[in-house]
């Protein structure tokens, strides 16, 4: 097991993602450091990238400003995206203020539950896990439609909240915040490294 993983470090909960992936890698017997990614050239050596939670309008703007739109659209490794990251992965968002990367065939709705007071925790069934996952939804998006190539791994009444398309996985909630690394481990497995 050897995988070089980076975390898009323009804004958001970057250090939480770095820590979670370092732990997941260590558990898989790999001691490579997980690195922050700010510039196009930082992507070159990577097998996989995490796009963190944060504000999707802010990250979207900083992606454009840093000439990262094209490189992220063409990045050949796997992508693990949470919350704002899931919005950016979509082919379409319900809000023109965010320019999505179109990496996964799905439509997303931003802030699908409302404001912070509607943020919540729930035990969620996720395909591929044998017991429910502690899902933390913070001003979270949902997928309102997914294409035939996209597998819905988890859903609630508002929509789909966990998806996989080939090497890519995206979540409305925050596996990086809860110390449960099962979804990170699943991602590494799909990565086939």
């Amino acid at each position: 097991m050897d995988a070089r993983i980076g975390v898009l470090a323009l804004q958001g909960d970057v250090s939480e993602h770095i820590r979670a992936f370092e732990e997941a890698l260590r558990a898989a017997g790999c001691n490579s450091p997980v690195v922050p990614v700010k510039k196009p050239e930082d992507l070159a050596p990577l097998d996989a990238l995490a796009i963190p939670g944060g504000e999707s309008t802010t990250i979207s703007r900083l992606i454009e400003k840093n000439g990262m739109y094209q490189p992220l659209s063409e990045f050949e490794g796997g992508i693990f995206a949470t919350c704002a990251g899931m919005v950016l992965m979509a082919s379409e968002a319900d809000d023109p203020r965010v320019r999505t990367l179109g990496r996964m065939d799905m439509h997303v709705a931003r802030n699908a539950f409302g404001r912070q007071r509607e943020s919540h925790e729930v035990r969620l069934d996720v395909a591929g896990l044998d017991s429910p996952f502690p899902a933390v939804f913070i001003r979270a998006p949902v997928a309102t439609r997914v294409g035939s190539g996209v597998q819905a791994l988890g859903a609630i009444d508002r929509g789909i909240v966990a998806v996989r398309q080939g090497k890519h996985m995206a979540f409305s909630f925050h596996p990086e915040l809860v110390g449960d690394l099962r979804l990170h481990t699943l991602f590494l497995k799909h990565l086939g490294r």
């Binding site: 804004q11 909960d13 970057v14 939670g53 944060g54 919350c83 925790e121 913070i138 925050h174 915040l177």
Partner: peptide, 13 residues
């Protein structure tokens, strides 16, 4: 967790 998590999403901003 939800309160502190909200704050974490603001980081770098």
């Amino acid at each position: 967790l939800l309160k502190r998590g909200f704050a974490s999403m603001q980081k770098g901003g």
